[in-house]
Nucleic acid binder design. Structure first.
Lengths: 182, 182
DNA sequence: ACAAAAGGAGACAGATTTGTCTACAATTGC
DNA sequence: GCAATTGTAGACAAATCTGTCTCCTTTTGT
């Protein structure tokens, strides 16, 4: 049944994001989800397949969340404010869809899997490209330098918030980007 | 003897940085370094102690490298150029001291160890604070907003270069920061 | 030169990992 | 209702992990 499959993906995503992929074993996912091992391996060929499914799940959740956050912004300034306000809500655990903040799941996963030619690394790279496309879609003008800076500052804000724990990094980004002419 | 201890730290750092800490076992470090297991455990209480030593080693290498890169810059503009040029050399593997680029060792390690109260997480946070201090030291004026933006963009540049592999992110940072008034 | 310290090689214990397989129960389609 | 599918529970294999310990060799200080 597909319900078990989805339950496995949801459980895996939650545990992977919270603890790191390498720190969570299959058995832990089975215990928490209450699913049997045989069922897992009937749905997924290996742990890596489950990881990829969890990454895909996180990707679609994040993209949908981002799209909703940016919807309605019809000036570059509004896009910037909407984006970084949404990030701040994420950082302060006010976005239930994204779970308790522990950095970007894709940055974290990239850190755990060094092989750049692996499916996992490819998946993380792809996620960042899609995020960039989504932001570009909402910017009014074809303004590549601004898009570049927004994306770089977004990565910086996520990383800074994760490591140092200072959430007010987002207001610094908004202030800086409003002073940015191009 | 202290030579063995240093050899262990150097080998561990190289392997941890290249492959991720959780992917490298003690035995691999012993095999590569040629040191015996008993010697390792006479110098370090546990694997975690070796990890912390590797982090400390990386920290001092990085801080020294950064200090050298920024030395002589006596305007904010020069600091910015020196910083991001140095980063670009790191990204393109032109800085032998830092090894083959695979993101920031501290960001990566933070991703692998979720417990924020662990020594490892504390060590990573501390590293970022020291880097910030070093940059602040070279900025001519007491200009906190500029310092903030530089640090955020630095994190963003490192992360972006690591995941997407685009090294020219640094020139985008330099251009953006030169357009930044405060 | 010689005793003491340090290191090498690796067996071993105990825990944990992924993945397979067996035996049985629940659910489902017809 | 009954066969077929799907799921559960968990033993098990094989590999790998950290950390301890033994036996032996090399290095070092005096």
């Amino acid at each position: 049944m597909n319900k078990k499959r989805q339950l496995l993906i949801d459980t895996a995503l939650a545990l992977f994001y919270k603890n790191g992929i390498n720190c969570i074993g299959i058995n832990e996912i089975l215990k928490v989800s209450g699913v049997a091992k045989k069922t897992l391996y009937s749905h997924f060929e290996s742990k890596e397949a489950l990881i990829l499914a969890a990454l895909a799940q996180r990707h679609s959740i994040f993209i949908a969340w981002l799209n909703k956050a940016l919807r309605g912004s019809d000036s570059d300034k509004e896009v910037i404010t909407a984006l970084f306000s949404a990030l701040e809500r994420w950082f302060t655990n006010s976005e239930p869809l994204l779970g308790n903040f522990r950095g970007c799941f894709f940055i974290n996963s990239s850190a755990e899997f060094s092989d750049k030619s692996s499916d996992i690394a490819r998946c993380c790279k792809n996620h960042k490209q899609e995020v960039r496309k989504m932001i570009a879609h909402y910017l009014t003008k074809e303004n590549t330098p601004l898009l570049d800076v927004i994306c770089i500052m977004m990565e910086g804000a996520i990383t800074t918030a994760h490591i140092t724990g200072e959430h007010q990094v987002t207001t610094k980004c908004i202030d800086a980007l409003n002073n940015f002419d191009c």
